[in-house]
């Protein structure tokens, strides 16, 4: 399954990438539509983050290339925003929330200059959107995980990009943050932005995204979620994890998929530790 959109935001062409000669991505080839929320989903070690890093030019692929808006990354860099995994930076760094968000306005061209008034306004607006304006002066080490993630999102918003690539923004955040991130994403979509998110949770993926890329070193599927979420394709992506698959299969058979996240949590809330 590989559905090709017109006017793609991202085209990945025959991408193969490896760490220490061990291939992590093998001949991956797909295209993503503009103005959609796109989820890149797959089991652990399936190359999701590697794919994102290749899109962002952060590692050199063995072969293949990525085009953004039909151009090379360098030509459209200012229209693209990258949100790394929260754990990749040291949150004990002596910087305030505003300091980090202002990095969203850094450009190659203004690196040796002061930020303009306009830049500062954009940063304030971005902080307001994620609901952290009150904490603008707080040191980042004093934030909760969810707040840290929102700082990253605010920095990304301040970039004023058209395409956003986010690596696991839902990991380790509280329910409130999760909801506010989702609201933000929906708003961004309504403004015509394209958001691509690496996501490890199959359960919520169906709920969050319009378009899903199923990845397991090779491309398993890329297309509208309704077409991608079939037992066959999920089986292909998740291979041996039969318990997962039978559960998903059951759900689909009963046509109660997607299971609402909230109901799911309530059901789980009994805390009996049973596996589902």
């Amino acid at each position: 399954m590989d559905i090709r959109p017109d006017c793609p935001a991202i085209e990945v062409h025959n991408l193969t990438a490896s760490y220490n000669r061990k291939p992590v991505l093998w001949d991956v080839d797909f295209a993503l539509p503009q103005g959609k929320l796109v989820g890149i989903v797959g089991p652990n070690g399936s190359g999701k983050t590697t794919l994102l890093r290749n899109m962002m030019g952060l590692m050199k692929p063995d072969s293949g290339y990525v085009n953004l808006f039909g151009k090379s990354l360098d030509e459209v860099r200012e229209k693209v925003s990258y949100v790394p995994q929260r754990e990749t930076v040291d949150w004990d760094f002596p910087a305030s929330v505003m300091d980090v968000v202002e990095m969203g306005r850094y450009r190659k061209g203004n690196l040796f200059k002061r930020l303009s008034k306009q830049d500062k306004i954009l940063c304030t607006e971005a902080l307001e959107k994620v609901g952290l304006l009150d904490l603008a002066k707080r040191q980042i080490s004093q934030l909760s995980g969810g707040q840290q993630q929102r700082v990253f999102l605010a920095r990304s918003l301040a970039q004023q990009a058209d395409l956003y690539l986010m690596d696991e923004p839902f990991v380790g955040v509280d329910a409130a943050t999760e909801e506010s991130i989702l609201a933000l994403l929906t708003q961004m979509k309504s403004e015509g932005k394209t958001v691509v998110i690496v996501h490890h949770d199959l359960q919520t993926a169906y709920e969050y995204f319009d378009w899903i890329v199923l990845l397991n070193t090779r491309l398993v599927a890329s297309g509208e979620k309704e077409k991608v979420f079939t037992p066959q394709l999920l089986q292909e992506a998740y291979g041996g994890r039969l318990t997962v698959l039978s559960r998903i299969g059951d759900l689909m058979a009963k046509q109660d998929f997607p299971l609402r996240e909230k109901e799911f949590k309530e059901a789980k809330g009994t805390g009996d530790g049973k596996t589902y």
């Binding site: 962002m56 030019g57 952060l58 693209v80 930076v89 910087a95 980090v100 990095m103 850094y106 920095r155």
Partner: peptide, 16 residues
């Protein structure tokens, strides 16, 4: 200096 110290990947992502 601060940007490449705090978040190297991000710095690279904006072409620095």
């Amino acid at each position: 200096l601060v940007l490449t110290t705090f978040n190297k990947d991000y710095a690279a992502s904006i072409g620095i």
